[in-house]
Design a protein around this nucleic acid. Structure first.
Lengths: 335, 335
DNA sequence: TTTATTTACGAAACCGTTTTCGTAATATTA
DNA sequence: TAATATTACGAAAACGGTTTCGTAAATAAA
């Protein structure tokens, strides 16, 4: 066990605890000579201060929490990298919590985070989250929350996301320019603001261009791969088959391609496909897929930086602003 | 602020702190009536115990750390899912630290973890890690460490990994069966045990089959995409071009495909390619790639379960065993 | 030389829990 | 009824740091 606590260290040195504590923090109250002695002894005894004792007294944990739906998706993996890189650089620790798209879990986790365990929270809500009371409660308990990617407008705080409406609109337009006349839209959630933005962007493009709009072109997918496969297959087998598909979420791209392969539909000849994705393998798919590529790393970084601005009290007033980092349409041979 | 601490709660109820504390933990010392009263008041005042005060007193943090090279890779993303799912189920918190393949960082992180911040550590070492003193030090300071995927044999502890040697051997054999006579091997590290296992598996297959073995078939890649692209290109432009490639790490698969496209080399006609990967998109690549698929989720789960067995002191003696979860070769059209 | 100031440190309170131990009040047994 | 056991709670000491405040000694100013 790391038996050397500050008391033992002080004993060894013939100093008081307080003096040792101050010396280690390079306090002006302590003479240079003493500091040197203390540092040397600390190193020799391999003294590592107890994190929780310190946090308890200082009421600062040097820890943030990241709460997100899942990490299997490329987007969140990369976002975590952005978050961790800033946090590590600031000397902060990162707790990670997965909600698995389960609202009750999100609520329970946020409630637990009132325990003083973290100084701040980065949150991307579940697909089920409609109500925001649990977030508000956490905020009023004194824990700042920054929302990223899947944000909730009604919460007053900093938010970082991408231009879902515009990029969806642009992608749909692109499909239309490439000759698509019947465009289907694969969605994953009805509650999510982000999902609605994408849907509305798509709708706007379709409306503007006077395309005919079949109700069954709006395909609601869920968490079940089998279900999604079936429902996409049904879409592509229908008499009124779409000749373009806008896929609003990464993993559905794979399913879409698989269905096309199974049905021997040629992309882009029979159907053109574009999707929201940051697949590193986008360029080597068959065919390479046109993607709306989200700045995942930057979103993570930016959200974390904003949180730290609050934590470091540089500007207390930076609340309730929304930062939009643009996605980019990368055209490849699937359209 | 969450002002309600246990003292305030006790005051409100006209009880002592100790009594309230015990009541909340359903101690036998407290009458049923009092418990009920306390629970009700706690709920009403939205009392959430301070995590660090509790940890400090109990000398248990209910927290584990996951230290790994990076999370951009599919493997680690999925492993984290496995880890988090077990941890959450046990009521533990998960701290995540990325070393970015930097040994000094790994050392610093592990040293910091002597602070009592965590009860245990799950570690997958960096590509640079040769020395294991820092791990040993952490262990002797009383923090159990379980290694996963990228393990270090010399450390006495539980280890969870996959059968890198065998699966590499099998994959190389497979390439040979498919007619490859000149097989290159793309590697990423010289230190890593796991990398060496894979290399040796490959070598064994090549040797067994009496294939000619060019020194330049062993291609050492690194973290730089540009470098890797160049070096793979050089390999495929050489007069003695290989007709099979075994790719030992996921992200190099993409580079390999890109180089083949650029050089207009047909997979699998001109070169057959197989690689270690858990790409969800493996089946829709051009062409679908034959992969050695690692049980990432299970590795994460198993490592975490082992750690909890130590933490919960069920069997103190479960040290120094290595659990091998087999990978599976999934043959697709790239070979 | 006397007074004011600065320097360098120690004593002790404090952060918010948990846990040990002691003890009235009540219940049980002899 | 007296002796013993049990029940239900309170007082106080931890846990290991940090921080406030007080104060001798050293130094500077008058």
């Amino acid at each position: 066990m790391s038996k050397t606590n500050i008391r033992a260290l002080a004993m060894q040195l013939g100093l008081s605890q307080g003096t040792v504590s101050k010396a280690l923090k390079d306090s002006y109250e302590i003479s240079a000579a003493t500091k040197k002695r203390v540092m040397a002894a600390a190193k020799k005894l391999n003294y590592v201060p107890n994190a929780y004792a310190s946090s308890l007294r200082k009421k600062k944990s040097k820890t943030i929490a990241v709460v997100l739906p899942e990490v299997a998706d490329s987007f969140f993996s990369v976002a975590i990298n952005g978050i961790e890189s800033i946090a590590q650089q600031k000397g902060y620790h990162v707790l990670i919590y997965l909600t698995h798209e389960n609202f009750a879990k999100e609520k329970a986790i946020l409630n637990e985070l009132k325990s003083g365990r973290v100084d701040g929270v980065l949150l991307s809500v579940t697909r089920e989250t409609k109500n925001s009371k649990h977030i508000f409660d956490l905020q009023t308990s004194g824990v700042p929350v920054v929302l990223f990617d899947r944000v909730l407008e009604e919460i007053k705080t900093a938010k970082v996301c991408t231009n879902d409406f515009d990029s969806s609109y642009i992608a749909a337009k692109h499909l239309i320019e490439r000759g698509c006349t019947k465009i289907a839209y694969l969605s994953i959630s009805k509650n999510l603001a982000i999902a609605n933005e994408r849907l509305e962007g798509y709708k706007k493009a379709v409306r503007e261009c006077g395309l005919l709009f079949e109700k069954n072109f709006l395909v609601a997918c869920n968490n079940s791969e089998n279900y999604n496969y079936a429902v996409i297959k049904k879409l592509l087998c229908s008499s009124n088959r779409p000749n373009g598909i806008l896929v609003s979420v990464e993993k559905l791209i794979i399913t879409t391609y698989q269905v096309c392969n199974a049905l021997q539909l040629k992309i882009p000849d029979d159907v053109k496909v574009a999707g929201f994705s940051i697949f590193p393998s986008a360029s080597i798919l068959n065919p390479p897929i046109t993607t709306i590529c989200q700045p995942a790393f930057e979103i993570g970084e930016t959200a974390t930086s904003l949180l730290f601005k609050i934590l470091e009290k540089r500007g207390v007033e930076l609340e309730n602003k929304k930062i939009v980092l643009p996605s980019t349409l990368i055209v490849r041979s699937s359209t």
